[in-house]
Design a protein around this nucleic acid. Structure first.
Lengths: 124, 124
DNA sequence: GTCATTCTACTACACTTGTCGAAGCCAACA
DNA sequence: TGTTGGCTTCGACAAGTGTAGTAGAATGAC
């Protein structure tokens, strides 16, 4: 499930709260994204075709629901980035993050902590 | 500097070793990417237009050189991912990484290892 | 009932991206 | 010197993307 940039905007709005109508989504789009109503409808139609979103008619109006979880979409985007730009491995990415100082000490600590918890509690 | 998927392939090959000719790049493309020679040339032309790559004629043949560092390209791709899919913050990403069961144990171990090494050697 | 509002369904259209093919230019070799 | 093989530049074309307008149907307010 590959989403385009514009589609991410829609999905982000939809994940925020759903089900939602096209108009709901329109209102929730980040300031700065001023798309025409029909643009949003077009996006939604395409997302429905892609099965990323479900559509149910309620009276005259369509109501939409995500069909792929944010988690799944994130995973897919993350994997793509990894494959494309980081030799498909987490190592180079982490390395990069560290080098680039993109991770604050706090974030590193958090990441480590969560990973460790995982390792321990993972016995289940 | 936004690179497309195909462009990443080219750039990856070019960063590997440069300067390089189109043919060099062709040979270095990952198995499975079997592009016609002219496809590669097209990509290179577009990359030159975009100023991601420099081109110098050597006799009859063009020799190419990256003009954006891998580091920079990675940063840009990383930022895009963050903005698009992780609310623009590293926090959610770290969280995701930890939650994500799709990461293999190996990848997690790698994460931890790199973080630890960083913490130690990166005292500067 | 009629009008304004609001949906929906269709259509459109320029730009980008992924992939070449064709045709011409040049150096080296039989 | 004519042929071969590699290089180059141009042009092309189908799909995918971003962005929206239009027309017609349904709904709610007088």
């Amino acid at each position: 499930m590959k989403l385009t940039e514009a589609e991410w905007q829609i999905m982000n709005a939809l994940w925020q709260k759903h089900p939602a109508t096209a108009r709901d989504i329109m209102d929730r789009l980040p300031a700065g994204v001023n798309w025409a109503y029909t643009t949003i409808k077009t996006m939604l139609t395409r997302l429905v075709e892609k099965q990323a979103v479900g559509e149910v008619k309620e009276g005259n109006t369509s109501v939409y629901e995500p069909r792929v979880s944010q988690q799944k979409a994130r995973l897919s985007a993350f994997r793509s980035l990894l494959d494309q730009a980081f030799d498909g491995a987490v190592g180079p990415l982490v390395h990069f993050l560290a080098e680039e100082k993109q991770l604050t000490a706090k974030e590193k600590a958090e990441l480590k902590r969560v990973l460790e918890n995982e390792a321990e509690s993972k016995g289940e």
